[in-house]
């Protein structure tokens, strides 16, 4: 037998984790708090994802939503949309699920962002992966300069993390702006797509690092707005979602031209994507 086979771990083998908490945050989004059962380390960088296994149903890649500064557990937010995610919604407290990861070498540039202005632009559920880095910055606030978070949601019913973002909007060290595409009479905030918030950013944009995450259609319009604001491509980062099966750079599903979303991403620097027209 080969020497490496004897020492290498099975990259497809999940570890067990226990569901500690769950809460339905809106009609489709479920918050989950999980802890790994074994004593092996589970260290991650904001932007990394895990493959969540539901035995008999399958696996689904989900980016970790909590900050690595929170130890002993991690949080996921899962939209009910396919077979596995619906099964995740049906889980009960104490249930065991499989976890592979953390995966992905393309993470948020935690070090590079130090001492810089930071802007997050999130579309709906796009807030979930960004939240890991947002909370990481808030926990290491002195290392980073101005912080702005823009959130656009389709409608009021789809808003989530209510108390957390309410907290952000009352803090002095974070500028949080929110808009909904369609509002009813009860909504007193901004109305319109997330790009309408970009001109309202007071942070100096050209020198800031900008992080985008949202539905596929959003990227194009946000990038156009950022180009207008003359933000260089090197300072724009995008969190890309693709169909993923193996999560370890083999199965080919998540390929974006030369790149694999699973190992080269999921967070990509916009200037690196110049050779990848399929990205947007």
């Amino acid at each position: 037998m080969c020497e490496r086979c004897a020492v290498e771990k099975d990259i497809y083998l999940p570890r067990l984790a226990t569901l500690e908490k769950k809460r339905l945050m809106n009609p489709t989004e479920m918050y989950l708090r999980l802890s790994i059962d074994d004593n092996e380390p589970f260290d991650f960088i904001p932007g990394q994802f895990v493959e969540v296994s539901i035995a008999g149903v399958g696996e689904v890649p989900i980016t970790i939503s909590s900050s690595p500064t929170q130890k002993g557990y991690f949080e996921l937010v899962v939209r009910r949309i396919g077979n596995v995610t619906n099964a995740i919604h049906r889980l009960r407290i104490g249930d065991k699920i499989g976890i592979r990861g953390p995966l992905g070498k393309g993470t948020y540039p935690v070090e590079e962002a130090k001492g810089k202005n930071i802007v997050f632009i999130c579309g709906g559920i796009g807030l979930v992966p960004q939240r890991s880095f947002i909370n990481y910055i808030l926990d290491n606030r002195a290392d980073y300069k101005e912080l702005a978070v823009l959130l656009g949601t389709k409608c009021m019913a789809q808003r989530f993390f209510h108390s957390e973002i309410d907290g952000w909007s009352h803090r002095n060290d974070i500028r949080f702006m929110e808009t909904v595409d369609q509002a009813d009479d009860c909504w007193l905030g901004n109305v319109g797509v997330v790009t309408t918030l970009i001109p309202k950013i007071e942070t100096e944009l050209q020198s800031a690092l900008v992080f985008i995450c949202g539905p596929p259609v959003m990227y194009k319009f946000v990038l156009m707005a950022l180009q207008e604001a003359e933000v260089p491509r090197e300072r724009i980062f995008m969190n890309l979602e693709r169909k993923m099966k193996c999560g370890v750079g083999k199965c080919g599903h998540c390929q974006i031209n030369n790149y694999y979303a699973c190992i080269d991403g999921p967070v990509f620097r916009y200037s690196d994507l110049r050779i990848a027209p399929e990205a947007i």
């Binding site: 497809y12 035995a55 008999g56 399958g58 099966k245 193996c246 083999k250 199965c251 080919g252 599903h253």
Partner: peptide, 26 residues
């Protein structure tokens, strides 16, 4: 060509099963 899909196959007892990979095509 080596792209593959990964799927779970449940046994009749609904408790045990296997995870399989099968060829896929781009």
């Amino acid at each position: 060509c080596y792209c593959f899909n990964v799927q779970d196959d449940v046994n009749w007892d609904f408790i045990s099963g296997k995870r399989q990979r099968a060829w896929d095509g781009c």
